[in-house]
Amino acid sequence: MSEEQQIDGGRRDMLLIATGMMGAVGVGAVAWPFIDQMQPDASALALATIEIDISSLEPGMEMTAKWRGKPVFVRNRTPEEVEAAKAVALADLKDPIARNANLAADAPADDANRGAGEGRESLIVQLGVCTHLGCVPLGQAGEFGGWFCPCHGSHYDTAGRIRKGPAPENLPVPPVTFLSDTQIRIG
């Protein structure tokens, strides 16, 4: 047919490519809201800060608060526990990084960097979430007298550092602000 000879191949390709690209952009633009809606919503993000009163914490006591749906351990350690944590050489640690959100990302995991800072060495604030698969470790348990995760057998020492078992990292220290000596803010 004579009509067929008049088809402009270049024009056809141009139409095909332009339509295809427009379609791909459209699919991507529509797909993103469907993926993004799965991210934490405004109400979940709104719970990102809590304040805790720690005035009742005697040495050797621990309290648990809930932050972003996860437990936070606040522990007032005994002098023996602090000494035990200080006596550990960095080379013996499975994870030598402090994992403290208040410090530089590569700060070493010595006891001072794990605790609540100058003058508050006995206090340690950390997420009670095992870095293996997210169970809540038990306090004053395990081979190092710190925390022990019952799920897959991770042992943490008295500074919350991973010493034995499958967990890869130390218990994370969340962002902490001391509003006064007895009032702290997390987040």
């Binding site: 993926i35 934490p40 749906g69």
Partner: peptide, 10 residues
Amino acid sequence: TLLLGGFAVD
């Protein structure tokens, strides 16, 4: 976080 829709199962 994307799977959970938050920072923990909720």
